[in-house]
Nucleic acid binder design. Structure first.
Length: 490
RNA sequence: GCCCCCAUCGACCAGCGGCCUAGGUCACCACCCUUUCAAGGUGGUAACACGGGUUCGAAUCCCGUUGGGGGCACCA
C-alpha cells in the first residue's frame, strides 16, 4: 500500500501523441487511474510531445478523445489545467533547459563535443569488440584548454550527466521487486541535444519532480532506464518517486502487441463495437486479477486494485475473452441504451438513414431485444437484422442447403396460402400458423423453419424469424416467400 | 556482446511452505434447453518449463539450465 500519510499520491499518464492510443498504453494509464482512485490521489495527464516533427495536433486530439471515451478522467492536465500547468511537454522546454543549466553549474553535468559520427563509429567498434556500446565519458576528462579550444572553433556540444564508475543503485519496484544496477553499467547519458533541446530522461525527471509525482507506473521498457532517472532526480534534489513497472502486453504469438497483430488502437476497438466498460474491465484483468470474479464494475476495480498485486510477467491480449466479456456488457445494457449504441452501426451498414423515419424507429427499437443475446460486438448487429430493413439477397450456400429437402416447395406454397389468409398479423398468429404447417407435415422445427430463415433473412444466422416476419408485414413476407419458392426451381 | 527482468491449464487470473488429488474465468468438447443463430444450464479435457538444493514438508524459498522480453541513442 502506498497510503503514506505524509504525501498524497500523485500519478501521471504521459502519452506521446501518435494517434489513437495503443491498448497496451491504455492498460498502463488505467492502472495509474485505478491507483489514484484507490488511494484517493490525483491522476495527472501530461502530453509528451517534445519531438515536434513526429506529433500532430490531430494525434493529440485523438489521445484526449480516447481517454474521455474510456472515462479515465484526469484531475490535472490539458483542458482541466491545474497548479503545474502547462501539461504539454513541448511548452515546458525552458524548465528542462534551466534544470540542465543547474546541473552544469554544480558540476553534475558537462559539455560533450563528440560528433554524432564519432559516437556512432565508436559505438560500432565497441559492439564489434563485444563491449557495451555506450558513451565512454571522454569529454568529461577534457582539460580546460581543450574545452576552450572546442568552444573557440564553435563546435556544438551536448550536455551529459556524469555518472560515477563505482557503486550501485537499488530501488524497490512495486511489481518487480528489488532492482539493483551497477553504476558501471550506466554511461554518461545526454540530457540536452546539441541544438539545445532537452532529451527524454531530463524532461521526464524534471516534470515528474515539478508536478510532484509520487508514484510512477509505466511500461517495463523503462525499467533499465530507471536508475538513470533516479540519478537525475537526486542530482536535481527531487524526492525519489516509487516505481512500478508493468510488463508488456503480448500478441497471440507472444510477441509484444503491435500493429502487425491487427487492431491495437482504442479507435479500432471503438469502431468494432466494443464498449468502454468492457475494455476497461478486460484491460484491468490483464496482469492483475482476483481469484473468483471477472466481471467487475469500475467501483469494484477501484476498491480492489493494488499495484503491488500486479503480475511481473507479461500477459497475452486474448481477443476471445474480450469478445465474451463485451457480450456480457452488452447484455447488461438496458434496451434504450443498447438501441442508442447500435444505431450508428445500422446506419453505417446502410440499413437505416438518420434521422430515422417512424417506421425505422419502430423497427430499430423492436430489433434490440432480438440482438441483445446474439452479439458480442455492436458491429455484429446489422447482419442479424438486415432482412428487417432490406429485401436481402439469399445467401447461395444457405439457400442450397435449406431448399434441398423435397418437402420445401410444397411447404413454401402452403405457407404462402396460409399466411396470405392470416388475420390478424401478429407474432402469435404467424408463429401458430407456421408451427401448424410443420406439425401437419411432421417436420421437426429446426428443419421446418430453415427455408423461412433463408427466405426472410437471407441466412440461417439471424434474429428469430417470427419476430422479423411480424415486423416486416404480410405483403413483404409473401413477396419474399414467393421469391424463395422460385429459387427452389418452381 | 554486456546488463536487467520474466516463467501455474491453449489464454487470463487464484495460490504467497502444509488447506493442492492445484481453484475460477475465456476458449474447446459433450449433453440439456431451443424456430435458426445466440444466450442460459450441467458436465468434461487441460498446467506448476527443466535440473539441483533448503526443509519433516515446495507451485510457493535459493542456485543453475533452457526459453521469452527489455535496455545499452544528440528517440520517446
Amino acid at each position: 500500500m502506498n497510503d503514506s500519510p505524509d504525501r498524497q499520491v500523485r500519478v501521471r499518464a504521459a502519452p506521446a501523441p501518435s494517434g489513437s492510443l495503443h491498448v497496451g498504453n491504455v492498460r498502463t494509464f488505467l492502472y495509474n487511474w485505478l491507483h489514484a482512485r484507490h488511494t484517493g490521489g490525483k491522476f495527472v495527464l501530461r502530453i509528451e510531445d517534445t519531438d515536434t516533427s513526429r506529433f500532430t495536433e490531430e494525434a493529440y486530439a485523438a489521445v484526449l478523445e480516447d481517454l474521455k471515451w474510456l472515462r479515465l478522467e484526469w484531475d490535472e492536465g490539458p483542458e482541466v489545467e491545474g497548479p503545474h500547468a502547462p501539461y504539454r511537454q513541448s511548452q515546458r522546454t525552458q524548465l528542462h533547459v534551466d534544470a540542465a543549466e543547474r546541473l552544469l553549474s554544480v558540476g553534475a553535468a558537462y559539455r560533450c563535443y563528440c560528433t554524432k559520427e564519432e559516437l556512432e563509429e565508436r559505438r560500432a567498434r565497441a559492439r564489434a569488440e563485444g563491449r557495451r556500446p555506450g558513451y565512454d565519458g571522454r569529454c568529461f576528462r577534457l582539460t580546460d584548454t581543450e574545452q576552450q579550444a572546442f568552444e573557440a572553433e564553435g563546435r556544438p556540444s551536448t550536455v551529459r550527466v556524469h555518472i560515477p564508475d563505482e557503486g550501485e543503485i537499488v530501488f524497490e519496484d512495486r511489481v518487480i521487486g528489488p532492482v539493483t544496477t551497477q553504476l558501471e553499467q550506466i554511461d554518461d547519458f545526454a540530457i540536452l541535444r546539441s541544438d539545445g533541446a532537452p532529451l527524454y530522461h531530463l524532461a521526464v525527471v524534471v516534470d515528474d519532480g515539478l508536478m510532484e509525482i509520487t508514484d510512477v507506473i509505466r511500461g517495463d521498457d523503462l525499467l533499465s532506464n530507471t536508475p538513470k532517472q533516479i540519478l537525475l532526480h537526486s542530482a536535481l534534489g527531487n524526492p525519489i518517486p516509487t516505481f512500478a513497472h508493468l510488463p508488456q502486453v503480448l500478441g497471440p504469438d507472444r510477441k509484444p502487441l503491435s500493429k502487425r497483430h491487427g487492431s491495437t488502437s482504442i479507435a479500432d476497438f471503438r469502431e468494432a463495437g466494443y464498449l468502454e466498460d468492457a475494455l476497461v474491465n478486460f484491460l484491468a484483468l490483464l496482469g492483475w486479477g482476483t481469484a473468483e470474479d471477472t466481471i467487475l464494475s469500475r467501483e469494484e476495480l477501484i476498491s480492489r486494485f493494488d499495484v503491488a498485486d500486479v503480475h511481473p510477467s507479461p500477459a497475452m491480449f486474448d481477443t476471445k475473452k474480450l469478445d465474451w466479456m463485451n457480450g456480457e456488457y452488452i447484455r447488461l445494457l438496458d434496451e434504450q441504451e443498447l438501441t442508442r449504441r447500435v444505431l450508428p452501426f445500422y446506419a453505417n451498414a446502410g440499413l437505416v438513414r438518420e434521422p430515422l423515419s417512424d417506421e425505422d424507429r419502430q423497427k430499430v427499437d423492436a430489433a434490440t431485444p432480438l440482438i441483445q443475446t446474439r452479439i458480442r460486438r455492436l458491429d455484429e448487429a446489422p447482419a442479424l437484422v438486415r432482412g428487417l430493413f432490406l429485401r436481402v439477397e439469399m445467401d447461395p450456400a444457405a439457400a442450397a442447403k435449406a431448399f434441398a429437402p423435397e418437402h420445401v416447395p410444397e411447404l413454401l406454397q402452403a405457407a404462402i396460402e396460409t399466411l396470405g389468409a392470416l388475420d390478424p398479423w401478429t407474432k402469435e398468429s404467424v408463429e401458430a400458423a407456421l408451427r401448424g404447417l410443420a406439425e401437419e407435415r411432421q417436420l421437426k422445427p429446426r428443419t421446418a423453419f430453415a427455408p423461412f430463415y433463408v427466405a426472410i433473412s437471407g441466412s440461417t444466422v439471424s434474429a428469430p424469424v417470427f419476430d422479423l416476419m411480424t415486423l416486416i408485414g404480410k405483403q413483404e413476407c409473401l413477396e419474399r416467400l414467393r421469391r424463395a419458392l422460385e429459387a427452389c426451381g418452381h
